[in-house]
């Protein structure tokens, strides 16, 4: 389990995260949602250690990650997998070499064992016959799937996904969402996904944390999301005029029903 306690992050005079307290449950897909600039990515980067919080703690299975030295942090990092917004694939390496990279760097597996493992995860993310391709030859969806394959190749305990649907068409987004859900359940990993895609929120969110201007405004499940009594969250969910009108029409119908 990952626990965030009293977390603050400041860049100069700008306070980006204010007193964040939450837990991310194991074997579940935990979502951090909010508008652009609400602090989602900063929170994710503070949790994985790419940014150091101004104050506060991040606990991985009750071990304080922020207070750890670089050696201990690296041990925890070997249990993390991360899917970056743009894929973050190494340009000079092929798909196979990208996925194989953590195995080459940190394991003593033989070449054939590494190749078997690479093919196994590539098959799992439905990316067969792409071993020799380079990132520049892949579509956005294929890059994301390669990124997921690289993130899970070391059998991580925790999977972090930063905006997994950005730059993808709606259909490919659904495929990636489903893949993240399946992998979370299959490998029983603690997944933390950072998104503003409402489709992902509705389908993927076992637990949802809503950030607004650096503060946690709401947390709950997808079942309780639409009943939340939080103005900022409601505005976020019904962001477009079309959705607002649809909500108003629905409210009118409900009121009419209730008054009968």
């Amino acid at each position: 389990m990952i626990e965030v306690r009293n977390l603050y992050k400041r860049f100069g005079s700008q306070e980006v995260l204010k007193n964040i307290n939450t837990t991310f449950e194991p074997g579940k897909n935990n979502l951090i949602i909010g508008k652009s600039g609400s602090g989602k990515t900063v929170l994710l980067k503070c949790i994985v250690g790419l940014l150091t919080p101004t104050s506060g703690h991040v606990f991985f299975d009750e071990k304080d990650y922020v207070a750890m030295g670089i050696q201990q942090k690296n041990e925890i990092r070997r249990e993390l997998g991360m899917l970056f917004q743009g894929g973050a694939l190494f340009d000079s390496l092929s798909v196979e070499q990208n996925v194989r990279f953590p195995l080459d760097m940190f394991t003593k597996m033989s070449n054939s064992e590494k190749l078997d493992r690479v093919n196994e995860v590539l098959k799992r993310v439905n990316l067969v016959n792409a071993n020799a391709k380079f990132p520049s030859q892949l579509s956005g969806g294929m890059q994301k799937r390669t990124g997921i394959a690289r993130a899970i190749v070391m059998n991580p305990k925790y999977l972090f996904c930063d905006e997994p649907n950005s730059g993808l068409d709606p259909q490919t987004s659904i495929v990636i969402d489903e893949l993240i859900m399946e992998i979370t359940e299959e490998y029983q990993i603690t997944t933390i996904t950072n998104t503003h895609d409402m489709n992902s929120v509705v389908t993927n969110g076992d637990k949802i944390i809503f950030l607004h201007e650096g503060e946690k405004h709401w947390e709950g499940t997808r079942e309780t999301l639409f009943m939340a009594d939080n103005k900022e969250l409601i505005d976020f969910i019904f962001a477009s005029d079309f959705l607002k009108e649809a909500r108003d029409v629905r409210l009118e119908k409900i009121k009419a029903k209730l008054s009968k």
Partner: peptide, 15 residues
């Protein structure tokens, strides 16, 4: 380019 496309971050996350 590696920094801006988060490739360096990806390496750091791996340890």
């Amino acid at each position: 380019t590696m920094r801006l496309t988060e490739q360096i971050d990806a390496l750091e996350i791996m340890g």
